[in-house]
Amino acid sequence: MKARVHVTLKNGVLDPQGKAIGHSLNRLGFPEVGDVRQGKFIELELAETDKDKARARLDEMCKKLLANTVIENYSIELI
């Protein structure tokens, strides 16, 4: 089974990198771009066939390593 994890900054946490990307896009002729938030995308190969079990394990992985829950949210997608 394959899993995709998205890690994003929580609302209210300033994202200077996202802001810089937004500014650059505006300067490059994309004035329609407003707020930009940057995150991380992690793809994992899992030796597990049970979706519920996989999800529970991934949740643990996110809490232990993949995300810093002080500033980040995460979402899990199974494919």
């Binding site: 946490v13 300033l14 200077p16 990198q17 810089a20 810093n68 002080v70 500033i71």
Partner: peptide, 11 residues
Amino acid sequence: LPGTLMRNSHL
């Protein structure tokens, strides 16, 4: 320790 260290605001 509580909290975390983020990217410098001026990058």
